[in-house]
């Protein structure tokens, strides 16, 4: 690979901390949406972020991938403080992770194959054939092998999402961020995606940070779940999804995890 990892980077114990947040507040124009986030995401974890629509999940993710500075606090990625770091340092950090944006963000003028090739062209010395091969394989993993030569405008919304996942996988990053990967996917495709996440996680120890409302996914593959509540501006729950569903002291969290309408609030 063309990228050189900093020599100071230590080989962590199996359960090292991939991302550490301390006293983080996120928001826009100085106004916080969520405050006082203290959170460690471990290496090799499948970590879900949940919460109501508009509660700040995408905004939090933008801070984790260093595209948006938090209002306050500290974020340490792979041992590097990213809050206040300069662009050069940030772009070195960014190469270590893959990101799938909520709306796909595929490059519209390029075919799916070319979209997946872009990071390979920029950061590897692979031959042209090998790049094509790797890109075909990544598209195959998300079930889009047959559509490699189409433009994003020629495929459906769910397919665009999967293509964006293939692009996030391009460099086999050690941390992968996915913003609502299964929204808009049918149950079978969605289950295939879960299987892919688990396989990569087991085989390579890839860390996944996934925003999702898909309770089935959260329970079947999630190691831990963090829940954001926009009304209270806080991270209101953190733990194993099944545990939180049964034993969270917070009724809103239990309702969220059992899909109970707020009107029929039985438990107090």
């Amino acid at each position: 690979m063309a990228t050189t990892l900093p020599s100071s980077r230590t080989v962590d114990a199996p359960r090292g901390v991939a991302i550490a947040l301390r006293g983080v507040a996120i928001g826009y124009n100085g106004e916080a949406i969520i405050e006082e986030i203290d959170l460690d995401i471990h290496q090799g974890e499948i970590f879900f972020i949940g919460g109501g629509s508009g509660s700040g999940k995408t905004t939090l993710l933008a801070s984790l991938i260093t595209l948006r500075q938090p209002l306050r606090g500290s974020i340490v990625l792979d041992g590097i403080e990213v809050v206040g770091a300069d662009e050069d340092a940030l772009s070195a950090v960014r190469r270590r992770f893959g990101m799938m944006y909520q709306l796909g963000a595929l490059f519209g003028g390029m075919t799916l194959l070319e979209n997946v090739r872009i990071p390979l062209e920029e950061f590897t010395t692979l031959s042209n054939d090998a790049m094509d091969g790797v890109a075909h394989a990544k598209l195959g993993l998300v079930g889009l092998a047959a559509h490699a030569h189409k433009l994003p405008s020629e495929i459906s919304g769910g397919m665009q999402k999967r293509a964006a996942i293939a692009r996030a996988l391009a460099l086999d990053p050690s941390i992968i961020f996915l913003d609502e990967p299964s929204a808009g996917l049918d149950p079978v495709t969605s289950a295939d995606l879960d299987a892919l996440i688990v396989a990569l996680n087991h085989m390579l120890g890839t860390t996944f940070v996934v925003i999702s409302h898909e309770l089935a996914s959260i329970y079947s593959i999630g190691h831990r779940l963090a829940m954001l509540d926009g009304a209270r501006k806080r991270l209101v729950a953190l733990g194993s999804p099944a545990e939180l569903r049964e034993h969270s002291p917070d009724p809103w969290v239990r309702r969220f995890l059992t899909r109970t309408a707020s009107a029929s609030q039985g438990a107090a």
Binding site: G140, A145, A146, A195, A199
Partner: peptide, 20 residues
């Protein structure tokens, strides 16, 4: 196991087709 799964996923629908 998982390696088989990963390869199976990737092989789905692979069709070289005519080169443009």
């Amino acid at each position: 196991g998982e390696r088989q799964l990963l390869i199976d996923l990737a092989l789905r629908g692979q069709d070289p087709g005519p080169r443009k």
